[in-house]
Design a protein around this nucleic acid. Structure first.
Ligand code: FES
Ligand code: FES
Lengths: 141, 141
DNA sequence: CTAATTGATACTATTTTAGTCTCATTTAAA
DNA sequence: TTTAAATGAGACTAAAATAGTATCAATTAG
């Protein structure tokens, strides 16, 4: 049961790095050096984030990517949705047979509730909240 | 993000059926007819449940399987564990780099908390709780 | 005896995840 | 103005997880 797949994982790492690299443009090759993530794969990931409006891209020599929003406005649920589709744990177990009826199904209801909790908990986590903190606990950037 | 894979799903259906078929032994071929699940696959699933002590098996003509415990003592978390391994959403995102330290990591801590909730919510669901209920809401069997 | 059953286990197919490769386009800087 | 370092786009491949099949042996009711 994976809550976070590898592409989401790499995206989080890259975004955290870029968040600390404020206002600078970061190239894939720099990220590859620092984070040791396979280059072509990371590139594909950043391109996807660009398309989805999380990153801005700059072509040509000394180009790269930078955050388009503030770290505290980038939620990891956004990233999960980009790479893993809509945040759903839910799905119908019994097709027709056995299950009394869609809206009465206890299992479906319970899994729906669990899903709601997971989503709302995850919804609190931003890139900013994953950065290093000061000694008084304040979040940088 | 699948909380329940197909084998767990089929196991739940089969166990619900068998729970209603109380004290009788149910063969794979009967289940296949009623539930329209691929036979060999279902057989493999029931054999696994037998090994794990959820079902008892009876060989030979008119053999089959029956529940070894009461429906209200069979938790769907048990089934998830049989087919999908230990109930863990958690996993380390940052290896060495970036993440301040194992025990301080906010992401890891939060995902751990979410996991705990999921597990405890799921832990309330039993086979009995998925069966049809009487008009006063009492759980049969 | 024999047909219907499970036990054990190897095998295959499909889908999802994780990646690579290549060619075109852009652009800063020598 | 040439060139090297970037991204854009998309096809391609590899590996792992999921979903199943197939086969042969052992058991047992009738
Ligand atoms: S499991 Fe799908 S409606 Fe109950
Ligand atoms: S992500 Fe693994 S310890 Fe922080």
């Amino acid at each position: 049961m994976k809550l976070i797949t590898r592409d989401t994982d790499y995206a989080i790492r890259a975004l955290c790095f870029m968040a600390e690299n404020e206002n600078g443009v970061t190239s894939v090759s720099e990220l590859v050096q620092k984070l040791k993530i396979p280059g072509p794969f990371l590139r594909k990931i950043l391109q996807a984030l660009n398309k989805k409006g999380v990153l801005a891209s700059f072509k040509g020599k000394s180009g790269g990517f930078k955050l388009r929003r503030k770290p505290k406005e980038i939620f990891i649920t956004d990233l999960i949705e980009v790479f893993q589709g809509p945040l759903k744990l839910n799905r119908c177990i019994f097709k027709k047979k056995l299950c009394p009826s869609m809206d009465k199904c206890i299992l479906k209801k319970r899994i729906g509730e669990i899903e709601q909790r997971v989503v709302s908990e995850l919804g609190l986590i931003t890139v900013a909240s994953l950065l290093r903190r000061g000694k008084n606990g304040e979040i940088f950037k």
